[in-house]
Write a protein that binds this DNA or RNA. Structure first.
Lengths: 260, 260
DNA sequence: ACGTATTTGTTCGTATGTATT
DNA sequence: CAATACATACGAACAAATACG
């Protein structure tokens, strides 16, 4: 465990104390300093020398962002699921897992190659060597998605020896390559798969899929370009809204036809 | 304008004061009591006889939910866009409008009919008469989506005389039929349009669309069943995330290829 | 152009209630 | 029962942005 490094707050700064505190707690969270238990209000008051109100303000925002969870009488806890990658693609994997289905991965290819399109998104030269990870994801043995990832070989070459049929890519990427994906974007489009992709997904020829393009960044540069195809006849994107309880909830993935 | 009806707070209730206050402000917002300007902190303190801290707590939550907006030195304001319908479909219309494109509507059909599938979603008998609104939506003259809505004729018959080529359906529904849609769900799927739909959308035969199914409820019962097809070759669903600044979990629609 | 009043933003302090250990 | 930790609620003061005479 890394030793606690606390950045002292600057009271003469125009940045509010709660914002400085929130930023430092975000940094310490990203450093993995709190495995599960988070400092109590009182501890924060003492280490940062602020009022309890200010400490709560910062922690409240981290709770609202979903990183922490407070439990009355017990303490504040890190939400481990939020250490997992963000975005609609990983939300799908998690919702499938939460449904009780057993997820397995078939590795179709794990090689070094070049790809001009992926290179463009990764902002490297078109002939720059890339690591390609081509996998099929299955839920209870039935194909759910095909998932192609390209990463610059200069940073991702250690992955060629990794076991990518289990676990989360980002964990391997952090452990073996020292790269932490911190942000990015995703674009979701409907598309018609090629006959080859249709076969891999074991779906009829006249059905459409979600194509999810995903770019992951490691602070200073893009490191992950991914194109995934998700069976649209089995999975759909569902949103509910209700002005009384709060509107526009986070979309979730569902299978089947019933919507609450 | 309705006279201000303030529900007194119950200090012996186990429900926190801020929750009671938030609920009452939500109700007054729904009643349209505040056209644009919202009470100041001081006014809330006086009318509800709570501390400023409690009043701010309630208002902060309404701000977080997106219903209000506070501006230092000016006051608190109702966000008018939040009086508009929620969901991915209306988010698309708004983002197209925000892009500067001129939106027009072509009315293809406005009739009374029956439809067993729609009736099932509206929870009425299969032969119950429905109002069908079948429209094509265009952005700068180019087809963007086709949009079919079914409503129970018993409540929506006044719409047969309405001008549905302009304005928002929900406004007509509220004005002519006295029905306020307050909640519901949406399901998004990729699909392949029929040749007929392809023609209406003026798109090539081998492209896929987003199918958005939408169920709108008026508190006690479903009143709107809608199936829309959005050109997937022109519009995509984009999400960005960034753990440092807070994860952006609300997807937006974009056209073109550039993603920030 | 300036000063004052208003309004929200931030920060402190204090006390009490409630759930958990 | 007691200690701990979060939840709620009150009060007070000053700062920063805005509006207005």
């Amino acid at each position: 465990m890394a030793k606690a490094r606390v950045v002292p707050l600057d009271r003469s700064s125009p940045v509010p104390l709660w914002a400085q505190l929130e930023a430092d707690l975000r940094r310490r969270l990203a450093d993995g300093e709190f495995s599960r238990q988070f400092p109590t209000d009182r501890e924060l008051v003492e280490t940062y020398e602020v009022s309890r109100h200010t400490a709560r303000d910062a922690v409240d925002r981290l709770c609202a962002a979903g990183l922490l969870e407070r439990r009355r009488g017990r303490g504040t806890f890190v939400r481990p699921e939020f250490e997992q990658p963000a975005g609609a693609l990983y939300a799908l994997f998690r919702s499938v897992e939460a449904s009780g289905a057993e997820q397995t991965i078939e590795l179709r290819a794990l090689t070094e190659c070049t790809n001009a399109d992926a290179a463009a998104h990764l902002e490297v030269a078109p002939d720059e060597p890339l690591v390609l990870i081509d996998r099929t994801r299955l839920a209870d043995g039935e194909p759910l998605a095909i998932d192609c990832v390209w990463l610059p070989a200069s940073v991702a070459r250690p992955l060629l020896d990794a076991d990518l049929a289990h676990g989360v890519l980002y964990h391997e990427l952090a452990q073996r390559c020292g790269v932490h994906v911190t942000g990015g974007w995703e674009r979701i489009r409907p598309s018609i798969p090629t006959p080859c992709d249709c076969e891999a997904l074991q779906m009829p020829a006249d059905t459409a899929v979600f194509t999810i393009e995903r770019l992951g960044r490691a602070d200073d540069r893009p490191v992950e370009w991914r194109v995934s195809m998700v069976r649209g006849d089995r999975y759909s994107f569902v949103t509910t809204w209700d002005p009384r309880t709060g509107v526009d909830r986070i979309p979730t993935w569902q299978t089947g036809t019933a919507v609450g």
